[in-house]
Amino acid sequence: MAYAFTGPGAQRPFAGDRWPEPGTWTDRARASRVEHLPVWIAAELWVVELEGAVHDVGTQLRADHGRLVEQVDGWDGNAAAAFAEDCAARIRALAARSEPNDAMAAYREDAGSLGPADANVAGWVAAQAAAAVEGEDGAVRERSRQAAWLAERLELEPATGV
């Protein structure tokens, strides 16, 4: 079991097609472990089951086959808005700690305009801002923090069997 973000209506991101309805297997399944979810944020979150040769490619889990199990209802507009706001707050906190510079100013300005539809961007900008202040490790830590936020908010279980 793992998780997959999708577009509205279980649209497969970038693939131009949709996951079949829950329970039906499909080829070339893509999903993520909880710790990597923040980079894949999109409209819907699903629990997915993977089968066949499952392997990690960076932040993505790839498998021969997969199927949707159920949607994580907790990931809705409110959750996305809360996530975006949390990241915006993180960016402001980082900006407060750093010397004034153009990069942080740009990140903070960006943060001001992030809404629920921009949760994915918010996560990325926060990681960029963390890197600007704390170095590359900062980005990694920030993404871990975001993953923990999602796991707690949505009561996600760690991926199993992968």
Binding site: F5, P13, F14, W40, T59, Q60, N120, V121
Partner: peptide, 21 residues
Amino acid sequence: EAEEVRFEEHLAMCDGCAAYL
């Protein structure tokens, strides 16, 4: 594979590139 995932990661956070694709 690795480059493909990096490509997709970018699209995940970039509406402009998602629109381009």
